[in-house]
């Protein structure tokens, strides 16, 4: 499983290990999205992401959108080089 989800107190910590690409988005979305709205705080750790593509970007955009609308405070606790490069490419600063 490339994703680990831990719930501590009022925050959910999610860390993704491996690819954040078209090959994994379906699985990641299935595991992650139901957790949204369950906790007031969502911590996203992307420091172990090895690769990221447009599909991954889209998943992050959806997470952000859902967090905004559901009132969840989203924070990214770490991002790998692959994530930074992909985000820079589309000029989306780490959100």
């Amino acid at each position: 499983m490339p994703i680990t989800i831990e719930t501590r107190d009022d925050s959910t910590c999610v860390s993704i290990d491996g690819e954040l690409t078209i090959y994994t988005v379906a699985e990641l979305a299935g595991a992650l999205l139901p957790q949204m709205g369950g906790a007031p705080r969502l911590l996203l750790d992307l420091s172990q992401v090895t690769e990221m593509d447009g599909a991954g970007l889209q998943l992050l955009a959806v997470i952000q959108r859902e967090a905004d609308s559901g009132g969840t405070a989203l924070s990214v606790t770490g991002q790998s080089v692959a994530v930074t490069q992909a985000l820079e490419l589309c000029r989306k600063a780490g959100s």
Partner: peptide, 9 residues
């Protein structure tokens, strides 16, 4: 400049 459009999701 790049603007990523995600409105259509």
């Amino acid at each position: 400049q790049v603007t990523t459009l995600t409105e259509t999701i």
